[in-house]
């Protein structure tokens, strides 16, 4: 059974309301943790609660949080700065360490913050449903792509580094008459990172992705582009949901609703929620 669920889609299609309704429904069967990863959070508005970075009880079996990506970004950068300071300690004599603040503006640091936050949630999760309300398409796709891209880079760098290590050992064998096994700090760091991303990717492969669209051309086309991107990344456990659909007979449609009366919406959309639950069975 899929225990991690991502809700993706164009901005404004109803990712937050659909993920909130799904979490509310699924909490009848198993504890649910719902996390908003969109920096323009409005999950708290849906539940009429002030949510923070720490999961908060919304109802029995349902916890929710609005993840602060700035916190994860800062935490990572601070750890990195202290590691660089150790290697270049002499720079403190010239008071040059403040230039390292530029790390905060490194490219794709937002995707990295997303990855670190999701990884932390996964590593601390019990046997609950973990539901992620994702940011709009661009950042979400970058998030999935960056895992794939990092693994490719790591694979190539590690194979090159191993070749370098092997050459050094051959040379020491010829020159010194015995093979000296050096500790390659860079190779070890790369291998650790590869392990991290391999585990992360395995968790992604075991996740269910719901792509939300509305019954309009633009959100439909964007949903198709998301599907294409996911297929390229070998993420095939996805289903399409049409939200705000009034005259739709398919169970994958969630009908329009005027207010957020969760129980009423769920009872009026029984087909949809039953389909949603069934689609989580692997």
């Amino acid at each position: 059974m899929f225990k991690t669920i991502f809700f993706l889609g164009k901005g404004g299609v109803g990712k937050t309301t659909t993920s909130a309704l799904s979490s509310y429904f699924l909490s009848q069967f198993r504890p649910v943790e719902l996390y908003s990863l969109d920096q323009a959070h409005n999950l708290g508005d849906v539940f009429n609660l002030k949510l923070s970075d720490r999961p908060q009880q919304v109802r029995k079996n349902l916890m929710a949080a609005e993840v602060d990506l700035n916190f994860w970004q800062k935490k990572y950068i601070n750890n990195l700065k202290s590691s660089v300071k150790k290697s270049y300690a002499y720079l403190t004599a010239y008071n040059l360490m403040s230039y390292l603040d530029l790390f905060e503006y490194a490219p794709d640091i937002e995707e990295l913050a997303l990855i670190l936050a999701v990884n932390q949630i996964w590593s601390s999760a019990a046997d609950n449903f973990i539901i992620f309300d994702m940011p709009p398409t661009a950042l979400s796709i970058q998030f999935f792509k960056s895992v794939h891209r990092n693994l490719i880079w790591l694979d190539k760098l590690i194979s090159l580094r191993k070749k370098i290590k092997q050459k050094r050992e051959i040379l020491s064998q010829i020159q010194l008459g015995k093979k000296t096994i050096e500790t390659d700090k860079i190779l070890n760091k790369l291998l650790d990172l590869q392990q991290f991303y391999t585990n992360f990717n395995q968790n992604l492969q075991k996740s269910k992705l719901f792509i939300i669209q509305n019954p309009d051309k633009l959100s439909h086309l964007e949903a198709q582009r998301i599907i294409e991107s996911l297929k390229q990344l070998n993420l095939t456990n996805f289903s399409l949901i049409t939200n705000k659909a009034q005259n739709c007979q398919s169970p994958q449609c969630l009908k329009n609703f005027s207010d957020l009366d969760f129980d009423r919406i769920i009872s009026e959309n029984q087909d949809f929620f039953n389909w949603l639950r069934q689609s989580l069975e692997s």
Binding site: L80, V84, S87, F103, A106, D108, N150, I186, K189
Partner: peptide, 13 residues
């Protein structure tokens, strides 16, 4: 390389 890879190894380069 992607930021995460580059930043992780920068102190050993």
């Amino acid at each position: 390389p992607p930021s995460h890879v580059a930043l992780e190894i920068i102190s050993a380069l």
